[in-house]
């Protein structure tokens, strides 16, 4: 394993071994145990587009393992590099560090970076493209919460058309024999290019109530106002896909709700204290998963 550009770079065996290691690293991620596995190593975080959550979790993961970080978080960094190509910037940065996390507004940026870098490139999101560490932390959360990844029934709710997290996650879960339920308004349905590649059973639904009782996991995404030319349409659609604690009476007792966050009001705060809410633990899981990945990419050298 050299670069992590797409979740497709990892086979099931590597995914399972990363998730196992992430689980072992939980006490270190929580600060209860110390590690100096990556002492003396440097991680570059190059964010050509802001993403506080991704950047901070990578920096925390690196520092929990005894390593340090350099980089930039400011979108105006792109103007500092004006005239310099991404390839040249990556050649420079890869000489300063042991691995590079790249966030970039253009699709394929991480792939390009991986072609010119001497050190591992980790894709921290490239435009509407890939965000493999998000997929890994989603898989990790499901495994931790449910106890397994195989043969689950997973519902995806909300904006399935534009939400890249649900695209990658669907394709990744499909490798673990998951039955997928796509629940969305017609205008925000899962695109064909995703469903065409699924090998397991999947179905589409317009409302949650009809399938809720079957699900082991419900993955909720935000429906963005910008997708609707008419504000009234947005309000109607967003209202129809809102989750609250009353609705969850029909769910399996162990059903877990995930959400990549930030949420607006698609999950009512009265769900937060139910046994179904897993989304805050999911956000934390970004740390152990990224630690496991950094160990694998930098520590094993």
């Amino acid at each position: 394993m050299k670069h992590i550009v797409s979740i497709e770079d990892l086979d099931n065996k590597s995914i399972m071994s990363l998730l196992k290691r992430a689980s072992e690293l939980l006490p270190v991620a929580e600060g209860k145990k110390k590690s100096d596995k990556l002492k003396g190593k440097i991680l570059s975080t190059c964010f050509f587009e802001p993403s506080t959550r991704t950047r901070l979790s990578f920096e925390s993961a690196m520092q929990r393992l005894g390593g340090s970080c350099i980089g930039f978080a400011d979108p105006s960094a792109t103007s500092h590099l004006k005239g310099e190509t991404l390839s040249d910037a990556i050649r420079m940065v890869s000489g300063y560090s042991d691995a590079v996390v790249l966030r970039h507004p253009r699709e394929g940026a991480a792939k390009l970076a991986s072609e010119v870098s001497d050190v591992p490139i980790i894709n921290g999101g490239d435009g509407a493209g890939q965000h493999p560490t998000q997929t890994l932390l989603d898989l990790f959360t499901i495994k931790e919460e449910i106890g397994k990844l195989e043969n689950l029934k997973v519902g995806m709710l909300g904006d399935l058309r534009y939400g890249r997290t649900v695209h990658s996650l669907s394709q990744a879960l499909d490798r673990f024999n998951t039955k997928l339920y796509f629940i969305s308004p017609e205008s925000l349905a899962m695109p064909d290019h995703v469903t065409d590649e699924l090998t397991n059973d999947w179905s589409t639904h317009q409302n949650l109530e009809s399938v809720l009782s079957e699900l082991d996991v419900l993955y909720v995404t935000r429906i963005q106002k910008e997708r609707f030319p008419d504000v009234e349409d947005y309000k109607r659609v967003a209202g129809a896909y809102r989750i609250n604690s009353e609705l969850l009476n029909n769910a399996k007792p162990k059903m877990k709700i995930l959400h990549p966050l930030p949420r607006v009001d698609e999950i009512s705060t009265n769900v937060d204290n139910t046994k179904h809410a897993a989304y805050f633990r999911q956000a934390f899981n970004g740390i152990p998963v990224r630690m496991a990945l950094l160990e694998k990419l930098i520590g094993d050298k």
Binding site: T85, S87, R106, G108, L112, A128
Partner: peptide, 13 residues
């Protein structure tokens, strides 16, 4: 055909 693809936005790629 993807205008936002890095290959359409970077010199020498």
């Amino acid at each position: 055909p993807n205008e936002n693809c890095i290959c359409n936005n970077e010199r020498s790629v």
